Each structure stands twice: as C-alpha cells, then as structure tokens.
Amino acid sequence: MATLPSPPSTHLSGLARSLVQRGLLTEKDAEDIQTQARGAATHFVSQLVLGKKLGALEIAEFAAQTFGYPLLDIDAIDTGSLSMNTLDIKLMQRHRVIALYQRGNRLTVATSDPTNLQALDAVKFQTSLAIDPIVVEDPKLDKLIHHVLESNDTSLGDLGDEDIDLEFTDDEALAEKNAEASTEIDDAPVVKYIQKILLDAINAGSSDIHFEPYEKLYRIRYRTDGILYEIATPPLAIKEKIASRIKVISKMDIAEKRVPQDGRMKLVLSKNRAIDFRVSSLPTLFGEKIVMRILDPSSATLGIDALGYDPDQKEYLLHAIHRPYGMVLVTGPTGSG
C-alpha cells in the first residue's frame, strides 16, 4: 500500500514550511538554515539568501504570491518620504521591518517575511495602528535599514545606557551642576528614566512632553501631530524627584514650588546635533505640572521649494527677502512652525 509523503515539520517557520511544501527546499535544508539563522542571531530569509539556496527576488515573489501580499521594488521609493519616526530603531533592526507610509489608522510596512507575525504584532503594539505588510527583497531591505540608521545621528539604543551631555550655558549653572553631582548618584534611576523619556520623545517626533501629577496617579504624555498620547505612568513616589531633576537641568529654582517658573536646557546628542527644550512649571493641587517644548532645528530644514508656494508667490517672497531693508513677518498659531 502506497504511503503518503509526510508533511513538513511543524517547528519550521511559516515561510520555510511553505517553501518545503512547494518543493523549493528540502525539509533538511530548511531545518539546517533555520538552525543556522538562530545561531547567527539573524532571520530565516537572510540566512536563506546568504546560503544561496534561493535568490532574493525569487523568495520575495514566492512570498507575495503564496500569502497574497503586494510585491515592491524598494529601490523605486523616495527614502525622504519614509515615516522615519514611526518605528523605534531597535524594533526595525530586531524584526527587519520598516515603515513606508501611514494613511489614517493604517501603516504600510516593508518586510521580507510576511509570515513573521511576531514582527507585525510588535509594530502594531508600538504604533496602535492596523498593519498592511508589503513584501520586499531582503538585501534591499537590509540596505534601507542601514540607510535609516546612518541618517539617524543618535538613537535611543546608542544612548539608553549612557549619560546625556547636558550643555549649560553659564557659570552659575555649571556650579549648580557640580553641586548636584553627588546627589544624582542616589537618584540614578530617575536620571536615566528622564533621559529615556526625552530620547523617546525626540525619536517619536513629538513637540511637547507633559509631566502631570494627580491625586492617585502620575502620568507622562507626548504631543505628536497635535494630539496628546499617554506613554507612561511612573509611581507617585518619584514625582518630586522627577520635578526636581527637570528643574535643576533647566536652571529653575528647585526650592520654589508655589509659583510658575520658566527655564530652558540644551541636550547635546552628538557633535552636529543639539536639541533645545523650553520648560515651564505650574503648581497644582497635587504637585508641579511640567511641560517641555522640544525645539529641534533639524526638523525644520526645509527649502523654499518644499513650502508649496505658487511660482508667483515664491517670486514675491524671494524679492522681499533680498531687499536690503524691511522685514518679512511669518505668523501663525503656537506650534505651527
């Protein structure tokens, strides 16, 4: 009596199992490649391309046809239009996905393995958006991820375990910084926590950070694209330490808690990138509420051509700018640029 061929091993990944079922890989080859990928801390598709069992385009075409996702030549897209701040850099590296564009509550992501549900779930969890995968060739995806990493001067992964260089601009602030150095050792977790909050806000492209005390909770919110999102609820026990730390680095009076105060600080991320923060504190019934406005010069590096002027309006503007006298007023609501 003829015996039916046994199905592929159930411990193979979705893409590996499909390749075996279609006869493009033997089960032994698929298992060996998957074991090698785990040992090298890489992904199945990357190891498959590296082993030259199948070509990158052949794998991408197979995945797109088998699982019903669009296939995209990623070289054809404009990297300047990518949603760079949508996903965390570490998530992109770990799961080999990259955000292409967002429409409403849907985010289109490029991946070389659409069966990697762990990666898609991680993206969905971080963004709270519905995910639309698009299949791309793995080497081209790797190249694009490296391009994003190179264009990002400083990522949270680079600075998460290090002290941030806070640049103080006057002698009094420097003296205060030195005086606080010994006490900061005891508050190291709070210092690192605030560093993470600041870096996450910069990477997310947020415009403001709100530290808000209430009777039974303390919450931190980011303002991104005009909308406030709650991102953390630290313990009430550290609310005073958070407020004091922010006031110290913003050159505000930490002893005065009964009147509003304004301050500013500069965060030096690298030799060619620094972020300014404008800080305001306001006393409330349950503690000091603090709002930090992020002033990132790199977010406003647009040329006149990118502003959308009609040709005649652009000509009027350039004519006014080049006059040796007078001034050009650019007005609008707070936060509009």
Rank of each mutant, 00 (worst) to 15 (best):
P235S: 02
D305T: 12
A63F: 10
R17F: 02
S6F: 04
A60L: 08
A2M: 09
I185P: 00
I197H: 06
R94I: 04
Y218F: 14
L91S: 07
G303A: 14
V135F: 13
E150P: 00
T79H: 05
E256Y: 01
F67P: 14
I231A: 01
R323S: 00
L19A: 05
K289W: 01
D142T: 01
D163G: 12
P311F: 13
V135S: 09
Q47Y: 12
D142V: 00
P324G: 08
A179M: 03
I249C: 08
Q47K: 15
A30C: 14
A306Q: 14
H319Q: 07
P283H: 04
K314Y: 10
D165Y: 05
F67T: 14
K52P: 02
T183R: 04
K124P: 05
S299H: 11
I194H: 11
P235R: 00
G68V: 13
L129M: 13
A175T: 08
V136S: 11
Y101K: 01
V248I: 14
A76Y: 02
G39V: 06
D165K: 06
G160V: 15
D305S: 13
F67V: 14
A175I: 05
Q126T: 12
Q93T: 10
Q93P: 08
R17I: 03
S207I: 07
D253G: 00
E288F: 03
H147T: 07
A173T: 04
V268Q: 11
G308I: 08
N203R: 02
Y193E: 14
I194N: 10
A64G: 14
N105V: 01
Y325S: 06
K90Y: 04
A2H: 09
T115H: 10
M1T: 11
M292I: 14
I249D: 05
F211E: 03
I220S: 02
H147S: 04
A188R: 03
A320E: 09
V248F: 15
E150F: 04
Y229D: 02
H319K: 07
K239R: 06
Q118D: 15
Y193V: 12
R245H: 12
S244I: 09
V136H: 12
